[in-house]
């Protein structure tokens, strides 16, 4: 049995606690926002025997939407900040391919993981370039969604933050269009969630690096190739 070696794995601390908190708060906020947002767009027929004055379910749905929107927005701002002070895996440059090496990785991901033309590539620890870029696009849509949402909210609120986005309404041709685009952007979040969850499962299966649990524990695993030295 001289050829059989004990594989050793290196434990890599990838996702810092603030990144993980951001991620799960974001999950929570987005789920609430999609559910309540969809209901606001298409309220269901829920009749109650109680007097109308005793009912307020639609008001609660809307309140939840606005509350979750604030959580989403501040969480998002925090993540932007963390992109400058966090570790290298959280750094903003992970989301925009600026180096030659990252562009090469982008090509590799497309060839190996998307098109299955080749079978193997060297896997890094953080976001791969394509994933990083898709998160960058997602961040732009996050901002769009926050902007259009607060713009719609500005007509019913005197708060400071919504008023910052009031200019969006005339720019987009009135509330009707802001609402239309805000609604279509919701579908981006749904599509993104489908793809995101699938790819987590895919990468976890193919790479065996603990993709799924890493967002809970922060740790990823890399097979130690230098175990010949043992």
């Amino acid at each position: 049995m001289a050829t059989a070696r004990i594989a050793t794995y290196q434990k890599m601390y990838v996702w810092e606690l603030p990144v993980r908190i951001f991620h799960w708060l974001n999950v929570l906020a987005i789920l609430v926002l999609i559910a309540t947002g969809y209901l606001i767009g298409a309220p269901q027929k829920i009749f109650d025997a109680a007097e109308p004055s005793q009912q307020y379910w639609f008001g609660i749905v809307r309140f939840s939407h606005f509350a979750a929107a604030y959580v989403f927005f501040f969480n998002y701002l925090f993540r932007l900040y963390w992109g400058f002070v966090g570790n290298k895996f959280a750094h903003w440059s992970q989301f925009i391919p600026v180096t030659k090496q990252r562009l090469k990785e982008f090509y590799e991901v497309v060839v190996v993981d998307i098109l299955h033309i080749r079978n193997e590539r060297e896997v890094g620890e953080g976001h791969n370039t394509l994933a990083g870029l898709s998160y960058f696009a997602a961040f732009l849509i996050f901002l769009f969604q926050a902007g259009t949402g607060f713009a719609l909210y500005s007509s019913m609120s005197d708060s400071f933050i919504p008023s910052l986005f009031a200019w969006v309404v005339p720019l987009m041709g009135g509330d009707a269009w802001v609402r239309q685009w805000h609604h279509i952007a919701m579908w981006f979040f749904i599509v993104f969630t489908i793809v995101h969850v699938y790819l987590v499962i895919y990468h976890d299966w193919v790479e065996g690096a603990g993709e799924t649990s890493s967002m809970i524990s922060g740790w990823k695993f890399r097979k130690d190739e230098s175990d010949d030295a043992e």
Partner: peptide
């Protein structure tokens, strides 16, 4: 915002 039917909206009665 000033519609007299607004309470029905908040109550979810459409």
């Amino acid at each position: 915002d000033t519609c007299y039917r607004r309470p029905f909206y908040d109550a979810g009665l459409f």
